[in-house]
Design a protein around this nucleic acid. Structure first.
Lengths: 205, 205
DNA sequence: TAGATTGTTAATCGATTAACAATC
DNA sequence: TAGATTGTTAATCGATTAACAATC
């Protein structure tokens, strides 16, 4: 129970959740590891192994009860609650994030948006007022925000990150095309479309 | 030489490229594997091992010549050319992609944008006219497009993908929150902010 | 009971790290 | 030459897969 779960397994749980939700929507009640594996292009053995870290979640001979497994994974990932998210930098990407409806029911809600441009501050996006980046401290504490998305230009990303960390942010989704320096107890995930495309072009010869 | 390079190594090359470019901008001429490793939070040994797959690219006692290594990695990744990109689905995400300037100088250029909404078709984004999705075939061939980004709603993503594949697209950057079924010779990379956030929230207890 | 599928062990496979001779 | 750092081998570590007894 107390064992450390490998990061790579945690990384697959959200994918399991996504296909389980789809199956549930389609009216399915049970799913076997093989069935799930085929939908994700991974082996059934791997899915069983991954899930076994969290207890005996399936029924021999039957498979996994979808509704139960969804609830279980939501618990494991701590998304049986809604996390408030701050978005910093309301350019195209920040704007898209603020309006993104893929967060609904997946555990997250953008509740604060920031920019440093005086012309943007005070205007609204999706019913949220863009706040001045100077108000970071106040808003983060008031809204009890622990996760932030950095969508500023690369030049501003590190200093914005430093402010976020200083104000208690523990996890960052970084869209700026640089590696962010953060303390060991702060987590960062990177999203950079150019990086993803560069992986693809290798194989296009 | 003829050996297959592990996918995980190819995945790191774009990151190496990014820090090398940064060092070059800062006026540096040489970088050691340890220095690069510290900037990326990986070991120098791993960087040396990765690069050794492509020849003897460094100088013992000195490190790697930055400009040379950048050029070499660009060659390996096939981004010493510009790939035309099609973006399908011009909602917030598609719009952000069309206007994204992080592609410049990194090997890619959005040259065609598509939507199925008649009200959007014909309007311009970043100097590009939104084309009807029915014109996929014509435009893809005319512009010699091999890579596409899918930024449609989940419900349309698979059928759009099928059309793309039918028309010769070999690599897809998928923003729709579903797993896409494609033939073995077509590559897909996935970007889903909710999935990334779910990985983070696990660690927030 | 017969059939199906889990949970788990052991075997395999692959990636990372440590260490150091080669060499700039 | 002395110092530094690569390229590479061997050792270690970790992840995936195969196989099957347990059991629903």
């Amino acid at each position: 129970m107390g064992e450390e779960i490998p990061k790579i397994i945690i990384g697959r749980l959200p994918l399991y959740l996504r296909v389980l939700r789809r199956l549930k929507n389609e009216g399915e009640v049970y799913a076997s590891s093989q069935e799930l594996g085929e939908m994700l292009d991974i082996s059934g053995a791997q899915i069983r192994k991954d899930l076994s870290h969290f207890g005996e979640l399936g029924k021999r001979g039957t498979g996994y009860e979808i509704e139960f497994l969804i609830e279980k994974i939501r618990q494991i990932l701590n998304i049986n609650q809604v996390w408030n998210i701050a978005v910093v930098g309301i350019g195209d990407v920040g704007h898209a994030l603020a309006r993104y409806n893929g967060f609904v029911n997946r555990g997250f809600k953008v509740t604060a948006i920031f920019d440093s441009n005086e012309k943007k501050v005070g205007t609204e996006v999706q019913g949220l007022v863009i706040r001045d980046i100077k108000d970071l401290k106040e808003v983060i504490h008031k809204e009890d925000i622990k996760i932030a998305a950095v969508a500023t230009p690369a030049s501003a990303a590190q200093s914005v990150t430093d402010s976020l960390v200083e104000n208690g942010i523990k996890a960052i989704l970084n869209y700026a095309p640089i590696y962010l320096k953060v303390p060991d107890d702060v987590l960062v995930e990177y999203i950079d479309p150019a990086i993803h495309l560069q992986k693809l072009s290798y194989y296009l010869g």
